[in-house]
Nucleic acid binder design. Structure first.
Length: 866
RNA sequence: GCCGGUGUGGUGGAAUAGGCAGACGCGACGGACUCAAAAUCCGUUGAGGGCGACCUCGUGGGGGUUCGACUCCCCCCACCGGCACCA
């Protein structure tokens, strides 16, 4: 037989086809077996897969294959987050219909994904842009509408001028659009909302049950929900209450929210948001109010104007000026605040600018009171100048002050959240139509379930200008009222695409033809045991999914609260960059001998950055797979760093991974070449071999032991925290040992064979193609595919060392090492240590005070100090 | 500003439960093979000192706890990420 070389492209396409034909990656519901649901965040079908995708899917695939070999019935689906702006932009720019553009991209991206050898059950593939999928977005919308969880309100929205659409708060980053980086302005529009705030308390409490999530993601969720305790307090506008009976008229009371009712006696003025309903009526100068309005939301400067009116502080009856100030947000609290410049930095700055009085009511404990405050004192202390509460500790007094307000009918305890309702209306074409009809007689009418889906009309002109493209489609807009049959108009907004991804994981529980919300399927496969994706979704997608899951629970669709039991947020794929003073970012190919090839200036090694087109440091997965094979790419992607950390792509690192697989290939073929008639794997001979190999002093015992130690290392590395990099390192070590193993006896060949077969099994989740090939060539197993084999079992007694290296410390420093038999009693270890020659040298002239024995590791000797 | 994270050789990264710091890979250096190169294989590789067996220092910096600290505690520095006038 001619010598065989490792040709990844041949064996990879061969096995991918074989696996597909044999259907080994499809999953059936099987209540008799324990399930495991492994899910990677589904991609937007942009047409090109990048290294970030590869890393994500490879991590998921390793977990999937590992769990399958451990007997789990693993669900591992893949689909397409297929609605969204790029398709629409392609239509605007190139005249391709979004649906065609998207479907074509799906075809090419699927082909790319298949090339990495990921074991997806494609029978469950979905694309959110298809009516059979988005129909259920509409169904959920109607269910939510029926329960008051979907509603419409006139509101100020974040409007991206270049995308000409509304953005959710989460989609605005530093005042810019998350997608196009364009300016975002405030605009008033009628919008549909999901009442996520109805679940605010529950979503927050649920955070504490997310034990399998990274701490920082849980922290971000909590932060986003932003619960704070405080009070709402009524301030009466001076003069307005002087009516008969002392009852204030409408519009004469201003309600504020504060987390610091303890500072009420320090209030010296109050501020309204320029958007506050009373701002216009209280403010005497409309032009000035307009100026403040224009400065609203600008963080760099505090701008305010005195309204000319005063309010009465309910705790001390003082009259304080009312301002309108740009920094007071309308969306949070009541849109009005009490200002305590002495104890709030923002109020302090405002007071300074407008020459308002500062009154201290909290004195630092034991601290000296300086003449004048340089900044607000926001810490705790003792109340001063605070009426009946003077002298008490400020924290302790909070409850009493709230009680006092309550008694007088001037306020109450209130809990506030930063979380706001989820605006889902988008003035876009390529999304799910909101299933609502407006009828002149009946008003707002939801489309009945039986008439779903409301199909996106195919023939719509997309110009990228103006409002909803659907509004232009007469045939779509004009309809009959489902209730009374009169002519009516359809809602022309579409849904935020985050709606699509808020429940797709449930859809995967059924195959493509099956009903999407089948109870048996969901009950068996949900929740997702392991979810894997980028941190960029730490708040948005994950919070929405948690909300949807609760909504689904209340609809009786699911029987649990949290959709994702464990979450892994993988790090970014980065690479070094190059820069040149003249040309900016340059490709590595544009650097020759440290110079830019265009201008001859020095090429500067830039920072290691996330791969991006603009930084010219992208590596195309296709190219690299063609060159090295998918297995090499997989091994490198996993070896370079633990999955949750950023990894640096390095061409030499890829070479190293490739070298490792080549070495394995060569070694296994050498073993097959001189195959010993003893096949240690089958039947009685295995037992016989294993028993002998465990006996002390056997020449091939070390390799046998190393094999089992590797089983342990790889297994625990995967089980403990998915640190695949150390698992692969352990396999490299085993391979190195096999290379240096020299055998003089027949059983030695058997030990090599044994090690090789375990090695191939252990590596198979990481590098599936080469391992399947080698497994078959070793003529191992009776199941055919290596992926139908059980994971190697660890024999603890086989992994145990016969002898170990004892480390002896004297006064905390390592002074001697020696080999001792394993399992020696403590006293024997102690005396061995004390008798060690080098140790004795170091003990000369000293008195031994204490000797500590750490079992199996070291002896620490302490001497008398003088 | 608040919250979270990270900091280890030339480099990516390892170090059960406080117990030999630097596994494994990359790079570099030396050697073998070759007419030569590539590939491959075998060595060496934290720093400093000593002819030497060895010694000293060393996990961002400074303290502390401990027989013993990359690991635990306190303070500080740097970088990264999230939130940010949230009252």
């Amino acid at each position: 037989m001619a010598e065989r070389y490792y040709h990844p492209s041949e064996i990879e396409s061969k096995w991918q086809k074989n696996w597909r034909d044999a259907g080994i990656d499809t999953t059936e519901r099987d209540p008799g077996r324990e399930k495991f649901y492994c899910l990677e965040m589904f991609p937007y079908p942009s047409g090109k897969i990048h290294m970030g995708h590869i890393r994500n899917y490879v991590i998921g695939d390793v977990i999937t294959r590992y769990k399958k070999m451990n007997g789990f019935n693993v669900l591992h689906p893949m689909g397409w987050d297929a609605f969204g702006l790029p398709a629409e932009n392609a239509a605007i720019n190139n005249g391709i219909h979004p649906s065609i553009w998207t479907e074509e991209n799906i075809v090419s991206m699927k082909a790319q994904i298949e090339k990495i050898g990921a074991s997806y059950d494609w029978a469950r593939e979905l694309a959110t842009c298809r009516p059979e999928y988005y129909r259920w977005n509409q169904w959920f919308f109607i269910k939510m509408y029926e329960r008051g969880l979907a509603y419409k309100k006139n509101s100020l929205v974040n409007w991206c001028q270049s995308c000409a659409t509304v953005l959710a708060n989460e989609q605005v980053i530093d005042g810019k659009c998350w997608r196009c980086d364009g300016d975002v302005v405030q605009k008033e529009l009628e919008q549909w909302f999901f009442r996520i705030t109805a679940y605010a308390e529950e979503l927050l409490a649920g955070c504490d049950t997310l034990a399998g999530w990274p701490d920082h993601v849980v922290a971000m969720q909590k932060n986003w929900i932003g619960k704070s305790y405080g009070a709402e307090v009524d301030f009466q506008v001076a003069g307005s209450g002087d009516v008969a009976g002392g009852v204030p008229g409408p519009g004469s009371t201003i309600r504020i929210f504060t987390t610091r009712p303890d500072t009420l006696f320090g209030v010296t003025f109050m501020c309204l948001s320029p958007l506050h309903p009373l701002a216009a009526s209280l403010c005497e100068n409309a032009a000035e109010l307009e100026m403040v309005k224009n400065a609203y939301g600008k963080a760099d400067e505090k701008v305010g104007v005195f309204t000319g009116k005063y309010a009465i502080n309910p705790v001390n009856g003082e009259s304080i000026p009312i301002y309108v100030a740009n920094f007071v947000l309308m969306q949070y609290g009541t849109g009005a605040i009490m200002s305590v410049p002495a104890h709030d930095q923002r109020d302090f700055e405002f007071a300074r600018k407008y020459g308002l009085p500062v009154r201290r009511v909290i004195i630092p404990d034991g601290g000296v009171v300086s003449a004048e405050l340089q900044s607000a004192y926001e810490e705790d202390g003792t109340l001063a100048d605070s009426g009946q509460f003077t002298g008490r500790h400020n924290r302790d007094a909070i409850k009493s002050i709230i009680g006092y307000l309550k008694e007088k009918g001037k306020g109450e305890e209130v809990v506030n959240f930063k979380l706001r309702d989820w605006g889902i209306s988008r003035q876009r074409y390529w999304g799910t139509p909101i299933p609502i009809v407006y009828c002149r007689n009946c008003g707002v009418v939801p489309v009945p379930e039986t008439r779903l889906p409301v199909i996106l009309p195919p023939d719509v002109k997309l110009t990228g200008k103006g409002g909803s493209p659907l509004a232009e489609a007469e045939s779509f807009v004009n309809t009959d009222c489902p209730k009374c049959g009169a002519p009516a108009r359809r809602e022309t907004d579409t849904m935020d695409t985050f709606v699509d991804s808020s429940w797709y994981f449930v859809r995967f529980c059924g195959k493509s033809g099956e009903p999407p919300l089948d109870g048996d399927n969901i009950k068996y496969f949900m929740p997702v045991d392991q979810y894997i994706g980028g941190v960029e979704h730490a708040v948005l997608h994950l919070l929405y999914s948690r909300f949807f899951t609760r909504a689904m629970r209340d609809l009786g669709i699911v029987g649990f609260d949290e959709p994702f039991t464990r979450l892994l947020t993988q790090g970014m794929v980065c690479k070094e960059t190059w820069k040149c003073d003249e040309h900016g970012w340059i490709f590595p190919e544009e650097v020759k001998d440290g110079k830019c090839i265009h201008c001859g200036r020095d090429a500067l090694r830039g920072r290691v950055e996330k791969m991006s087109k603009s930084k010219k440091n992208v590596v195309a997965p296709d190219d690299i797979i063609t060159k090295y094979g998918a297995d090499t790419v997989r091994v490198f992607a996993l070896f370079a760093a633990p999955p949750e950390k950023d990894m640096e792509w390095s061409d030499q690192g890829v070479e190293g991974a490739s070298r490792f697989l080549n070495r394995l290939w060569t070694l296994v073929h050498n073993i097959i070449g001189k195959r010993n008639p003893i096949n240690p794997i089958h039947g009685e001979r295995v037992k016989c071999f294993e028993a002998e190999a465990k006996m002390p002093g056997v020449s091939y015992g070390n390799l046998f032991r190393k094999t089992h130690q590797t089983i342990r290392k790889v297994t625990t590395a995967i089980e403990k925290d998915y640190h695949f990099n150390t698992a692969i390192a352990a396999l490299m070590e085993l391979l190195n040992d096999m290379y240096s193993f020299e055998s003089s006896v027949d059983k030695g060949d058997a030990a090599m064979f044994y090690a090789a077969s375990k090695m191939v099994l252990l590596l198979s989740p990481f590098a599936p193609h080469i391992c399947e090939e080698l497994w078959r060539e070793l003529k191992m197993g009776s199941n055919g595919s290596i992926f139908l084999e059980p994971w190697p079992e660890l024999d603890e007694s086989a992994a145990k060392e016969e002898e170990l290296e004892l480390v002896v410390q004297v006064d905390g420093k390592v002074r001697g090492k020696q080999m001792i038999p394993a399992g020696l009693p403590e006293e024997a270890v102690k005396s061995a240590a004390l008798e060690n020659e080098k140790v004795r040298d170091h003990l000369a002239g000293k008195t031994v005070k204490n000797v500590m024995v750490v079992r199996g590791k070291l002896v620490s000797i302490v001497t008398e100090k003088r």
